[in-house]
């Protein structure tokens, strides 16, 4: 039996920064899409099940375009080892309770919208996709903000859980603003805008903006370099096992 090499087959372009950008942002979208897909059959209400699946579908579509720019989409998604993925550690975090998923959505969709919004006005290879995807992400952000308000300013229990989720994921948010090779934007300014936007939503939701570190020794921050957290390996095993067990299988 011959199985394709488990390493990315993108040597011919691997050194270009455009590929690096497509891989980093494509992996973010792919991994979060998979995590959101895990809610199928488990969401608190049917409407929310459909919403999370739709958001996952948008992200998967974005991932397919970006990974296709970086190489063969299936090889990249299904045959890379953990260390070859360039996604943020935030998006690989387990779904947790619904509050954790919403906090992750709030942090990430706010970031992704800022990123795509700036890429859309540039002339990079990703500009076309970004101009399209930014409109989709606007709905993801709106969804996350509305739920943050509802949970934060809801019952005592929903407030407690939303606060706990926002704090648990806070240390993963500094990594988002490490410059990505090939994404030519003002990262410091993007971080300021992100912080202002998230702060405003949390305050409106009667939540306290977490005080923990976002960078430094006690923060996360090496997903872009291929270092990932423990739950990611298990997620990949599940995501990749069918393709690896049945090479070349089709529907």
């Amino acid at each position: 039996m011959t199985t394709p090499a488990p390493t990315p087959t993108t040597e011919k372009t691997a050194d270009t920064s455009a590929t690096a950008a497509a891989l980093a942002l494509g992996d973010d979208a792919l991994v979060l899409s998979h995590r959101l897909g895990e809610w199928a059959g488990h969401a608190p209400v049917l409407e929310e099940e459909v919403a999370l699946a739709n958001i996952a579908l948008d992200l998967l579509g974005q991932a397919r375009v970006m990974l296709s720019l970086a190489g063969d989409e299936d090889e990249l998604a299904y045959l890379r080892e953990e260390r070859a993925f360039r996604n943020l550690q935030l998006v690989e975090q387990p779904n947790g309770d619904f509050a954790h998923t919403i906090a992750r959505q709030l942090y990430f969709s706010t970031y992704q919208k800022l990123l795509y919004g700036q890429l859309a006005t540039g002339d990079s290879e990703l500009a076309g996709l970004a101009a399209k995807a930014v409109k989709e992400v606007a709905y993801h952000q709106d969804h996350a903000e509305q739920w943050t308000l509802r949970l934060g300013d809801g019952t005592e229990e929903s407030h407690r859980r939303m606060q706990r989720a926002c704090e648990a994921l806070w240390r993963f948010t500094g990594e988002m603003f490490q410059p990505v090779d090939g994404v030519d934007i003002d990262w410091q300014d993007t971080e300021r805008t992100w912080l202002a936007s998230v702060t405003s939503v949390l305050r409106q939701a009667t939540l306290t903006v977490p005080e923990g570190p976002r960078t430094g020794a006690w923060a996360a921050g090496a997903g872009r370099q291929g270092l990932h957290t423990e739950p990611f390996g298990r997620m990949l095993a599940e995501m990749q096992h069918l393709h690896r067990s049945h090479p070349g299988a089709t529907w």
Partner: peptide, 28 residues
């Protein structure tokens, strides 16, 4: 995006008094 909370006319009876149940429905 156009705010989803703004009024949308009911395709059945024509009323503009409609409410949002979910931001995402049968398709994206």
């Amino acid at each position: 995006p156009v705010a989803l909370t703004l009024s949308v006319r009911c395709p059945h009876c024509g009323s503009t008094d409609t409410e949002l149940l979910s931001r995402f429905s049968s398709t994206a």
